[in-house]
Amino acid sequence: MMLIFGLMLLLLKIAASVERFCWFNQSGPCNVVLGDKLSLMMTLDASKNDLRIHKRIYNTSDDPFCKIKNDRINEEECDLFKNTLDEVSVNNGILVINPVIRADSGIYRLQVFNSQGVEILKADLQVIVEDVKFTCSFDQSVPCSVALGDELRLKLADPSKNDLRIHKRIYNTPEDPVCRIKNDRINEEECDLFKNRPVSVSNGILVINAVVGADSGIYSLQVFKSTGKEIFNADLQVIVEVSVLCSEGPSSLVHVLVWSFQMVVLLGLLGGFHVYMRLTSGKKEEDQSVRMRRFREGHEDTAEDGRDQQQISSHQ
C-alpha cells in the first residue's frame, strides 16, 4: 500500500508537467493555462499532406496563416507565429506552442490538402488561454500554497485609508525584514522585505511575481489607523511548492486525476496478477508434493507386497 501511495504522488507530480493536448475535431474549446505548453493534433500523417492553419480574426485573406509541408513549417509562408517562431514546432502532425501567451487565444482553422491540392479536411478549434491567479488572504485559516515561479497575490486591507506593515517572522526580533505600505504604495525607504524583487501593490493586493523558494515562511500583517492605533494583526504561512499542480486549469486537473486513476487500476491489476501467480505457484507445488508423497507411498506398498510374496513362496 505504501508503495502504491508513493507511486501515486510521483505520478501526480509527473502528470502535472504534461503538456495540454487538443484536437481540431474536438467538440469543445481548447483551454490552456498561460505559460503552459500546448500541443495541437492536426493530422495523423503530416508527411503525406499539405496543411494550412489560419487564425480567424477578420475572416479575410489578411488573417495570419501558416503553411506546413513534410511535417515542417514553411517559414516563407508563415506569419501566424511571427514573433514566436522559435517557440513553435511541428512533430508527427502535432503543432507545439511553448509557452503560450495571451495573444494565442482565438479561433484557428485547419485545412488539409492532398498531393493534388484537393481539400480533404477542414476544421475549426477555439483556443482559450486562461490567466489563472490565486489570491490568499491574511484572515484565512489554512496556509497559502503557491507553485514555484507563479504569481502570488496577498489580499491586505484598504491601504488608501490605513497604514500597513508586513514583516517576515524569521527570528521574531526587530531585525526581521519588514515593509510598510501607505496610500496603496510600498514605502521603499522602509521596505527591506522584497529588496530587488518584482513586487507591487494594487487595490490592497500585494503581488509578488515569480515566487522563489525563499518566499516561503510566516508573514505578519499589521493594520494601523491614521492615529497610529493597531486595528488588525494576523499571520499567514506561505508555502512555495515545486509541483505546478495548483496552477493548472480545471481541465488539466481532471486529466491528471483520470490518468492517476487509470494508473491505480493498472497497479491494482498487476498486484492481483502477482497474488494470483503466487497462489497458483503454491498450489502447483502443493499438488507436486502430494503426487510425490503418493508415488513414494505406492512404491513402498509395492515393495512390501513383493516381500510378502517372497515369504509366501519360501513357505511353500
Rank of each mutant, 00 (worst) to 15 (best):
E230Q: 15
S243P: 04
I170A: 03
D163M: 12
Q288F: 01
L267Q: 02
K168T: 00
V265Q: 02
S243L: 02
F232G: 03
E248L: 07
S281P: 03
K182P: 01
A157P: 03
S160I: 03
L206W: 03
K283C: 11
C179L: 01
D184K: 05
L152I: 02
I181L: 13
L266E: 11
C191Y: 05
F261R: 00
G228E: 04
G217K: 02
T280Y: 14
A157I: 08
G268S: 04
P177H: 10
P177G: 05
A214W: 03
F232P: 05
D150S: 12
L267T: 03
V211G: 05
R180K: 15
I205P: 00
S247N: 14
S251P: 01
P159I: 00
R180C: 08
S202T: 05
R153Q: 01
L269T: 00
A147I: 00
Y276V: 09
V256G: 00
L270Q: 06
P177C: 09
K229G: 14
S216H: 03
V254C: 10
G271R: 13
E286I: 04
L221Y: 07
R169L: 12
V211Y: 09
E286V: 08
A234Q: 15
E151C: 03
D235P: 08
R169E: 11
S281A: 15
L156T: 07
T173G: 00
L279W: 09
G249W: 10
W259A: 07
C179T: 03
C246I: 10
I239C: 08
D176A: 04
A234C: 02
E175D: 14
V238H: 14
D163H: 15
G228P: 08
S202N: 14
V201A: 09
G271I: 08
I186P: 07
S226H: 12
V244Q: 10
S247I: 00
C246Y: 12
A234M: 09
P174E: 15
R185K: 12
C191F: 09
L154S: 07
G228Q: 04
D150V: 00
R185V: 02
K161E: 10
L148Y: 14
C191T: 14
Q262S: 10
E190G: 01
L266W: 02
D287L: 15
G282N: 15
Y276L: 13
A214G: 06
S145Y: 12
I170L: 15
E230A: 14
V211P: 06
Y219G: 04
K283D: 12
C191A: 12
S243R: 07
A234L: 03
E241I: 02
A214S: 11
V178F: 15
N183M: 10
I205M: 03
F194S: 00
I181T: 07
R153F: 04
R165D: 06
C191N: 06
M263Y: 06
H274Y: 15
K283H: 09
Y219T: 03
